[in-house]
Amino acid sequence: MISWVYLGIAVLFEIAVAFSAGNAQGFTRLWWTIATLVSGAIATFFLSLALLEFDVGVGYSIWTSVAGVGIVVIGAVFFQERLNPRKLSGIAMVIGGVIGLRLSGAA
């Protein structure tokens, strides 16, 4: 169970990576570049803790996919990006898949 917590923390910092990298503008802006690298280091470390228990394919895929969902949801809530039916179906597939993996005994 603690592996899922590690994976959740890694997801939060991966969302921070995407946000910082987007603002770093090709890594020409110093502080956003530093934020990208620091978030990436923290995300990677917590991913490595989760992967002590998860198989790499499972843990890695949950990590990137849930972060992808988080980015879209944050975009919709805070940046007025539109959620269309296609995005919602993608989100549903990722969440359904994660629940399926949890129930089929992946860590």
Partner: peptide, 11 residues
């Protein structure tokens, strides 16, 4: 389920 997740994130 892994395939479902990966298809979902690509979509």
């Amino acid at each position: 389920w892994l395939a479902v997740i990966i298809a979902g994130v690509i979509w």
